[in-house]
Design a protein around this nucleic acid. Structure first.
Lengths: 163, 163
DNA sequence: GCGAGTTAACCGTCCAGACGGTACAGTAGG
DNA sequence: CCTACTGTACCGTCTGGACGGTTAACTCGC
């Protein structure tokens, strides 16, 4: 679908040129589309950013689901490392793009609340699970800024040991 | 110093209205200063944002130093919770403000590398320390988006237990 | 099977407004 | 006289968005 290519272009642009490079003209050019064509799919810049956020959340939820681990925390852990190591799901880019208007981040706040709480009380050691999930957030955060710092395999093994 | 008040105003503006509200005119008005007055201290918007980043890093480094715990990780942990719980050091706001131009985030990347690595190998259990530091990042990240999710005291106790 | 009508997908141009930044004259305090 | 501003006027650029085409595929009556 063409819509997804436009979102890809916007993400890529954010990733390597930052938020102020995210203009309708630049996104259109990067996607090989005219500005009018872009506006056909997304009626406004706000709609474009909203689309990025929604896709990010949906994709990550799907990635968690696809892991099929025994607990939500284990799936969340696996999904985080897959997302970070493959470089798909450029959360940092998407989020900074949306940070211009805090209201656009509301869905992400909601999703984050879910990611931190879902199934937590049904797990063997809830506090440990919470620590692991928080560390996953940290991994994502640190990895997007300077990936070289972390030894993914080691951290992952240690986090699994905590559960 | 008036310079700090201008940085405060810029931070506050970012915090509750987002990055696109960070205009020279708006910062000046919030600080009770004319636009000319703002430009007297910061020759350009870029200089303003750079100032915010540098102050954030310096303040957090000072906060870590001030904890005087037995290891860097312990101090880092204590500093993180102090920063998050008191609401001082609005990192999220500062960072999103700077995310317009990725180059401005370079000092932060550098600082983050330091925060994740410094003294790590001298500590009793380096992998555990790394997990704790990553979880601190997660706490900061999650807390700034939706503080209600986390029971700070419980998480903190558990992280200390890991060390 | 063909012309007419419809719709989806897109193009290229234009414009009003916002924003960063400049210039400059003035001024209150020390 | 200097520092630290204030206030106003202004400029050039960029940007979001509106708008009026255009093309191509598809549908449907006849």
């Amino acid at each position: 679908m063409r819509r997804d290519e436009l979102l890809d272009a916007a993400e890529a642009l954010l990733q390597d040129q930052g938020a102020q490079a995210l203009t309708l003209a630049a996104v259109a050019e990067r996607a090989g589309v005219s500005k009018g064509g872009l506006l056909y799919h997304f009626a406004s810049k706000e709609a474009l950013v909203k689309g990025m956020i929604e896709r990010l959340i949906a994709d990550f939820d799907a990635l968690i689901e696809a892991q099929g681990e025994s607990t939500y925390t284990r799936s969340y852990l696996a999904a985080t490392f897959e997302a970070v190591e493959t470089g798909r799901l450029r959360r940092w880019a998407v989020v900074t793009g949306a940070a211009g208007d805090p209201a656009l981040l509301a869905p992400l706040r909601e999703a984050m609340a879910r990611w931190m709480r879902q199934g937590l009380d049904d797990e063997p050691d809830p506090p440990a699970s919470q620590i692991v999930r928080l560390a996953c957030e940290g991994v994502w955060e640190v990895a997007t800024h300077c990936a070289a710092i972390i030894d993914f395999a080691a951290v992952r093994a240690r986090l699994l040991a905590l559960l």
